[in-house]
Amino acid sequence: MPRLIFDEDKCKGCRLCTTVCPKKIVVMAEDRINAKGFHPATVKNQEECIGCKFCATMCPDCVIKIVKD
């Protein structure tokens, strides 16, 4: 089962990852802001992730690490 790990304080809130997730589960965390003052990207419904890596591929800041447990 693939799992997304967000290095949240490196996220600049550009949202590009959210535009490419085929399952629409990568979203911006509206409930918090990171060290840079942005809403960081995060994942909801992690279990729906298919490990396609689109989000990480599109991210300009290497915020997203993807592992498989």
Binding site: P2, G51, K53, D61, K65, V67, K68, D69
Partner: peptide, 16 residues
């Protein structure tokens, strides 16, 4: 745990 995607080693682990 298998890594599917991570920062490449030769890319410094800093905020650009």
């Amino acid at each position: 745990m298998e890594v599917l995607f991570e920062r490449p080693h030769s890319l410094s682990n800093v905020v650009n």
